[in-house]
Design a protein around this nucleic acid. Structure first.
Lengths: 225, 225
DNA sequence: GAATATCATATTGCATGCAATATAAATAGC
DNA sequence: GCTATTTATATTGCATGCAATATGATATTC
């Protein structure tokens, strides 16, 4: 295994929760498993810190980042900011390649049978969101999104494959695509932000229903002060 | 010098452009200068990569990140997204400590004599922006802002101390503070975003006036495609 | 003289031994 | 029996030698 392959393998193991969140990543164990020495392993671990999914504590070592349910809000609020701006910027793009790709995805989403939305939807969704980030032509936004998307996977592995949530998402994706094709920057951003807020809310409702004790205050009353 | 002191020292040297952007950071030279060995120096360099101001290229080493003028747009667009969301979230905060600090800053800004705006303004500005990020109570947003603020310093060291730009910024800061005190989330976000767009534009106009050749297209016509 | 190939040097990549520190387990004191 | 202290172990932190690679200079060919 090359160093990059080890990096990808370890990242995948963390994202698929083969390692439990909060687990200590012991250098010697990783050395023995991957049959390389501590120095390159440490470099790999620093790269995963850069990805946001591992953290390093001085004199303690490296740990798989632990994200509580309340961090779901943090991730979605950040996505709302980042992806809202990205899709706004993407509206300026008129390259035929980008527009063509967008229309292809539009048709695929439109013609997706209801019973396949839960299975195929998430993949299309990831592609679409990444396309907007690319189209923003903002390297810093892209750099940040990389990290945020890893954390999104880490917070909501479980949320995938819920057919009702994916159905709503597909409708948002179609509306957003149309807004971008129409070069309506305000509308595209507004839709993307609403998409993030609603998806966040749906995930909480579905997987952490106890969070909204009464429905009085919504998020404010939920424990995130 | 402890390792943390070396980290701070090196970061400061990079941010103050004692190292030229794009420069190679040679491990052995740093070792001799700081009188420690390569292993801890490499750890320090990885932390600076995490700060966004250093980049690592395999088999080539570490380099001071090089940001062209066109990256100023990237940084301000990202700040617009991040800080717009942060100030929106900050509007929810009603802790007396936060509100008091805000009012103290408000009075300081109001009573700041015109001829001291260029000198004192930037410092108050940094404090205020950091306060909003803190008040957002979003750890991910804060984490990202850390990096973005370093890059902001790296792109626009020169922009500080321009009294006309700082005068405009002060006025925005006062308006934003009032919006937050009034808990007007929409207005606070809208003002923060406008603040970022205008500051970006002013910096380009002042320090890179050749960018807007004709004033036909604005940013779109400027070279950032 | 220009382009290419070869070689010398500088720099990073890797492995590993020892030191310092944190964790836990066992023991002593109350 | 519980707490505090000591001791033992496990793990990271640091330094350094050697290997692999990239860079730059020199020489060689056309």
């Amino acid at each position: 295994m090359t160093k990059n392959e080890i990096l990808d393998d370890l990242r995948e193991k963390i994202l698929s929760e083969e390692y439990t969140q909060g687990d200590s990543l012991i250098e010697r164990e990783l050395c023995e498993y991957y049959e390389i020495s501590r120095t390159p392993i440490r470099e790999i671990l620093w790269r995963l810190v850069l990805d946001g999914i591992v953290e390093q504590r001085p004199a303690r070592g490296f740990f798989v980042r632990k994200l509580g349910w309340e961090q779901i809000f943090d991730v979605f609020q950040t996505r709302e900011a980042i992806e809202g701006m990205a899709v706004r910027l993407a509206c300026q793009r008129r390259e035929t390649g980008f527009l063509r790709d967008l229309e292809i995805l539009q048709h695929k989403l439109e013609s997706l049978p209801e019973d396949q939305v839960a299975e195929e939807g998430p993949r299309y969704g990831r592609t679409l969101h990444a396309m907007f980030i690319d189209a923003s032509a903002n390297t810093l936004l892209k750099e940040i999104y990389q990290k945020v998307s890893f954390l999104a996977r880490l917070t909501s592995n479980i949320a995938r494959h819920s057919s009702s949530i994916e159905g709503v998402s597909r409708n948002f994706h179609l509306l957003i695509i149309q807004a971008v094709l129409d070069q309506d920057a305000d509308k595209s951003e507004q839709l993307m932000r609403e998409h993030m807020r609603i998806t966040c809310r749906d995930i909480i409702d579905t997987f952490y229903p106890q969070v909204f004790l009464g429905k009085a205050g919504g998020i404010e009353a939920s424990g995130k002060q």
